[in-house]
């Protein structure tokens, strides 16, 4: 009798605990969903602002008005200034590339 009563109580308590656990999980998921929604809103906003900025900078009317004409004087260009500059830029391409020979001797190829 007592065993049956105890088992019934235990069953009810277990069902309640499972219910509470599910409810907690549900709330956690809701919180995650809400957080994700807020994050996606933030990202969308950042995306929209950057997009707006790039589109304003690259607006057709702006580009068409500021595009250099073919007659522009190129005598003092960035390229010439680079040639005159004795310093080597950090990421300047090397005039050769490593080549692997059949023997796998890279050093010889580099010479």
């Amino acid at each position: 009798m007592f065993f049956r009563f105890g088992a019934a109580i235990l069953l009810i308590v277990l069902i309640c605990l499972i219910g509470i656990a599910i409810e907690k999980q549900n709330l956690d998921l809701r919180r995650d969903l809400s957080r994700q929604h807020a994050q996606s809103e933030e990202l969308l906003e950042a995306h929209a602002r950057l997009r707006l900025q790039t589109q304003q900078l690259g607006a057709t009317s702006r580009l068409m008005r500021e595009a250099p004409s073919n007659e522009e004087d190129f005598s003092d260009t960035e390229y010439i200034r680079l040639e005159n500059n004795p310093r080597v830029p950090l990421l300047r391409w090397r005039p050769f590339a490593p080549r692997v020979t059949e023997e796998g001797d890279q050093n010889r190829a580099l010479q």
């Binding site: 929209a48 997009r51 057709t60």
Partner: peptide, 9 residues
């Protein structure tokens, strides 16, 4: 694909 109208907050 050029943006003609967009929305920001």
């Amino acid at each position: 694909g050029k943006v003609l109208a967009t929305t920001i907050t």
